[in-house]
Design a protein around this nucleic acid. Structure first.
Lengths: 239, 239
DNA sequence: CAACGTATGGCACTCAGTTCCCTCTGTAAA
DNA sequence: TTTACAGAGGGAACTGAGTGCCATACGTTG
């Protein structure tokens, strides 16, 4: 709203980056993203056009001003994670960390969500951002599972699952207009992933590499059922 | 290479779309994507600048000239899919359908892969394409699972898993330079997803359709016996 | 005061993508 | 044959994002 903030009675200049992001977001809400030019933004912010591109590499970046720092936070979180804990839990927690950035400013997040939903350019941009999170999670899992068979494959699939579940929970919260508890929604969604892929899952989910625990049975059609069952039983018993 | 093809002794004009796509791809390989302007492309193709944008909405589209039709194929496939078959199997098969487009032109696919890997703009574009496949798969699963609890969540997570596994297999094949069997690589990757999310969720997999009288059954240790038997029975019955 | 690094403004340029309008060509009706 | 029409392609001019280059202003340190 105002370009300067009152702090202890002294005028303190708001950082240009925030001034620009705020001016841009206002205009995007008023006229739409595509109907707003960079010249419009810098005019409202009262700065030169060149300054915009000094702080944001593209017009789209002004819509997600905090994603770089969020990515950095996630990097730090994963680097600090203990190798003792379940790897799936770690990446789920890392995803929740992103969520917190959203849930801190519900109104802003909801408005941005609406904007992003209806502007193809912003959807694409968001995709590329989300992809970076996913790659980071996959990288962490891959490193944790270097020894496991198909570790790389599992890492990518689990990372994709975590991101999908996180986004599902997040979007359901955003669609509700930011009412209710975002962490709850995402936690509930991630529970499915934790249960399915987590190392400490209940009996349904196999721990570690499946190769060892998989039994392949070949039978011919027409074979007597009792013989089939007999073989299945013995296979499952002592593998 | 040539703008006209000899057919039955008569000159037949190659369709402009292909002429443009080929000219564009050649130039992208020679000078790189960003160092090639649309003017360069139309100059080589010997057509007017305006024509390029008649056939491709953006420069990026010229790199993926067949994705729209591939998407249409997938739509048709999903619409024609039987409600009897395992929903997860259906979407896995739909993913393999995309793979076929790649494996039909290995050299082209490998060159494009290298190009896409090193041009950020193309990576982002590809992401938006892949996202459309994912949404389509998720839509199919959601519709199949309307009754299930958390059906929507499961649909999105499974779709993301399928896409991640597919891409893992595809990329490993592309990195190998197009040697070996792409279908094999992707099948192996998708096996993890089928096993984990298939409706015989505790491990039973559908029989191989190819062989007439041999049934292969995969089960995990610890799976409840009744489910295994149920699965065997149905496999032997209508396999 | 001078010298220097940093933050910002201004200008001109490239290039993607769009708008509007033109020509050419083949076809069907009069 | 002439006319009318439709559809494919060509082309000029425009908008707007993003970049490169240089000038200017300000604060710091010598």
């Amino acid at each position: 709203m105002s370009e300067a903030r009152e702090v202890n009675g002294a005028q303190k200049k708001a950082p240009m980056r925030e001034v620009l992001a705020e001016a841009a977001f206002q205009l995007f809400l008023e006229r739409g993203f595509e109907r707003t030019t960079v010249d419009d933004i810098v005019a409202r912010a009262g700065v030169g056009r060149r300054s915009f591109f000094r702080y944001f590499p593209s017009k789209e970046d002004a819509v997600f001003p905090d994603h770089e720092s969020c990515l950095a936070d996630m990097t730090a979180f994963l680097e600090a994670a203990s190798d003792e804990s379940d790897a799936v839990d770690v990446v789920c927690d890392a995803a929740c960390l992103v969520l917190r950035v959203y849930s801190t400013n519900p109104e802003f997040s909801v408005q941005r969500y609406k904007l992003t939903r209806e502007v193809p350019g912003l959807r694409t941009y968001e995709l590329s951002v989300v992809r970076r999170y996913e790659r980071m999670l996959a990288g962490y899992l891959r490193q944790r599972w270097v020894e496991a068979t198909d570790g790389s494959l599992r890492a990518e699939v689990v990372a994709a699952s975590v991101v999908a579940a996180h986004n599902n929970g997040l979007r359901s919260w955003l669609r509700s207009g930011g009412e209710g508890d975002a962490e709850d929604a995402v936690d509930r969604a991630l529970r499915l992933v934790r249960r399915t892929w987590g190392e400490g899952g209940d009996g349904a989910a196999a721990p570690e590499p499946q190769q060892e625990d998989v039994v392949v049975m070949v039978a011919t059609k027409g074979a007597p059922m009792w013989r089939v069952i007999q073989r299945v039983e013995s296979a499952l018993r002592d593998g």
